[in-house]
């Protein structure tokens, strides 16, 4: 079985809010100096989902697909270091101006060019623009069934489909899904495993395979954007916090209770 995992390079999400800056004129985010990007967190959960299928005895090739530019190679090789087999980068400056549907078209073409896949996994959303569009659009473009918010995944007993658990309002759902399929994975599935030394060494020796938009016959994709960003800004927030300080920490706790009652908040 072949599993394609879509993984996006995004700015580190763990920087303190005070260091988050945007260029309002250029409509872009300015990453703090010296902080490397990361593989989108949910996409690492998707890699983990694929590896768990392999752990469960499913013979599979796991191929990572990423569309972007300025790739930090040691970052993008993280999925390889924990067990993915190959890395395919659609490395193209023009990909900066793709919208979600454009990105889905490129991913679908790249997966097709690589020989297709029995299962396409993606993260539930990319933590830069928080859209959660690409996997859903991919399923439409590939005419494949879709399951979102996957927290557990196995191959069905007859080998012809998947048994899936997905997060739902107030609980979860168990779903049977035919193959091939597109799924988006959420953090409830569990964190990706750590890389060991051997994995890191193996990954460092592997070379990513690269594709371009022109090579995929998709150079004209970037022109027709249906939505234009016209403003990007950090909303102003004024702090008006009143700090409660007693003689010691437990006294502060006691005073806080009195304060909240006085303010009729509890």
């Amino acid at each position: 079985m072949k599993i394609a995992v879509c993984a996006k390079q995004v700015p580190d999400t763990d920087i303190p809010p005070s260091q988050f800056k945007v260029d309002e004129a250029d409509l872009r985010v300015i990453p703090p100096a010296g902080v490397p990007p990361i593989v989108n967190g949910f996409d690492m959960n998707a890699v983990e989902a694929a590896l768990r299928l392999r752990d469960a005895g499913v013979e599979c090739e796991i191929v990572i697909f990423s569309v972007g530019t300025d790739f930090a190679m040691d970052v993008m090789k993280k999925p390889l270091a924990i067990g993915a087999d190959r890395l395919v980068l659609v490395d193209d400056e023009a990909s900066e101006s793709l919208d979600a549907l454009g990105t889905a078209r490129v991913l679908s073409a790249a997966i097709e060019r690589d020989g297709g896949a029995d299962l396409v996994l993606a993260g539930r959303q990319a933590s830069d623009w928080d859209q959660a569009h690409v996997p859903i659009m991919l399923s439409e473009l590939m005419s494949a069934p879709l399951v979102t918010l996957v927290r557990g995944l196995t191959v069905s007993a007859d080998g012809g489909g998947f048994e899936v658990e997905r997060v739902a309002e107030g609980g979860f759902q168990r779903v049977a899904c035919p193959m091939p399929a597109v799924m988006s994975v959420t953090n409830e599935l569990g964190e990706a495993r750590y890389a060991n030394l051997r994995g890191i060494m193996m990954a460092s020796r592997k070379q990513p395979e690269t594709m371009t938009l022109a090579g995929l016959g998709l150079s004209d994709l970037v022109s027709g954007k249906a939505l234009e960003m016209t403003r990007l800004f950090v909303p102003a927030s004024e702090s008006n916090v009143e700090m409660i300080e007693g003689d010691d920490e437990s006294d502060s706790g006691r005073l806080l209770a009195l304060k909240l009652r006085e303010a009729k908040l509890i």
């Binding site: 700015p11 999400t13 809010p17 988050f20 945007v22 409509l27 985010v29 933590s127 830069d128 623009w129 928080d130 027709g224 954007k225 249906a226 939505l227 234009e228 960003m229 016209t230 403003r231 990007l232 800004f233 950090v234 909303p235």
Partner: peptide
């Protein structure tokens, strides 16, 4: 909201679709 709520973005539809 974008970037986890760290920023807000305004988008305008650009064609007649």
């Amino acid at each position: 909201p974008v970037h986890g709520g760290s920023a807000l973005a305004v988008y305008e539809f650009a064609d007649n679709g």
